[in-house]
Simulated scan of single mutants.
Amino acid sequence: MTRRAPTGAAVLQPEVTRSITEAVLDELAEQGYARLSMEAVAKRAGVGKSALYRRWPAKQDMVIAVISEFSLDHAVIADTGSLREDLREALAGLVDWLTHPRFSRILPDLTAEAVRNPVLRAAVESAIGNPRRALGAELLRRAVDRGELAPDVDIELALDLLAAPLYWRLSVRGAALEPGYLDALTETLLRALPPPPAPRSR
């Protein structure tokens, strides 16, 4: 016998979730995290506040869920068989993430807010920072397995080296990328990362 869902049970319609997601991104870009409200998101999405609360218990949960999905969707971790090409693709994906029309306005505000709010900082690190770094670590470990990097490469330090130049240039300085910048950065990173030990001569 097929059991029916109880009368009044929440059915989370994908199209409504998409509308809310877009509204959250728009509100974050325009108002910032501190001024964002559930009421404003609901109004922009054309739904009642109950539609938001059926999905997330509070503003922070809603924002983290939306930004996490957006950020992981924009994490490009290629497996080309070459560390050089993998790095180049990863850097291009990082540029797309950091220069996205809305996200480029959201990230600086969210970063500043996280400095003042330890709970938010922990949530951002857990839902966004750690998953993206885990994907980058896979890229580096594959290079170790292929014999392109030293087995004792410091993965955490290497991940900082990969992300820091673009974050500083794009999000902090607001500088443009000249033609050939990503190629030059790729070559610089390859020189900075520890190569595998040279084979012993017999």
Rank of each mutant, 00 (worst) to 15 (best):
Ala75Ile: 12
Val41Ser: 07
Lys59Gln: 04
Ala58Arg: 12
Glu27Gln: 13
Thr99Lys: 07
Gly32Glu: 07
Asp79Thr: 10
Arg142Cys: 11
Leu166His: 01
Glu178Tyr: 11
Leu91Ala: 00
Thr188Ile: 13
Lys43Glu: 13
Ala198Ile: 11
Leu182Phe: 04
Arg84Val: 10
Glu22Cys: 01
Pro108Thr: 12
Arg55Met: 11
Asp61Trp: 03
Ile77His: 09
Ala163Glu: 08
Val172Glu: 05
Leu157Asn: 15
Gly32Arg: 09
Arg44Gln: 06
Ser68Leu: 04
Val144Cys: 07
Leu185Ile: 00
Ser104Ala: 15
Asp26Gly: 13
Pro57Leu: 11
Arg54Cys: 10
Ala175Pro: 02
Met38Cys: 04
Ser71Asn: 07
Arg141His: 09
Ala175Val: 03
Ser171Phe: 04
Ala34Asn: 10
Ser50Glu: 12
Asp183Pro: 08
Ala122Gln: 09
Ala34Arg: 11
Gly174Leu: 08
Asp61Pro: 05
Val95Trp: 10
Leu135Trp: 06
Glu156Tyr: 14
Pro196Lys: 06
Ala184Ser: 02
Ala137His: 04
Ala9Cys: 15
Arg84Ala: 11
Glu138Asn: 14
His74Ala: 09
Tyr33Gln: 08
Arg55Val: 09
Pro131Val: 00
Tyr181Pro: 02
Pro151Gln: 09
Ala51Ile: 01
Pro197Thr: 09
Leu193Lys: 06
Pro14Met: 00
Ile67Pro: 03
Leu91Arg: 00
Ile64Ala: 04
Glu85Phe: 07
Ala175Thr: 03
Asp145His: 13
Ala45Gly: 08
Tyr33Asn: 10
Pro57Arg: 09
Ala51Thr: 05
Ala23His: 03
Gly136Lys: 01
Asp79Gly: 06
Leu190Ser: 02
Ala127Arg: 05
Ile77Arg: 05
Leu94Asn: 06
Ser104Leu: 11
Arg169Asp: 04
Ala137Phe: 06
Lys43Ser: 12
Arg116Leu: 15
Gln31Lys: 15
Leu161Phe: 10
Pro101Thr: 01
Leu12Phe: 08
Leu98Asp: 07
Val119Met: 15
Thr111His: 02
Glu22Ala: 07
Gly93Asn: 04
Leu25Asp: 01
Pro179Thr: 06
Ile64Met: 03
Leu189Trp: 03
Glu178Arg: 10
Thr186Pro: 01
Val172Gln: 05
Arg35Gln: 10
Leu166Asn: 02
Asp61Phe: 07
Arg54Tyr: 11
Glu27Leu: 12
Ala198Glu: 10
Val16His: 00
Ser171Asp: 06
Gly93Thr: 02
Tyr33Asp: 08
Leu120Arg: 00
Val11Glu: 08
Pro196Arg: 02
Val24Ala: 07
Ala78Tyr: 01
Thr2Glu: 15
Asp96Trp: 02
Arg18Leu: 12
Leu190Tyr: 02
Ile20Cys: 05
Ala112Arg: 14
Ala163Asp: 04
Glu113Met: 12
Ala45Tyr: 05
Ser104Val: 12
Asp79Lys: 10
Leu149Ile: 01
Glu113Val: 15
Leu182Pro: 01
Arg4Glu: 12
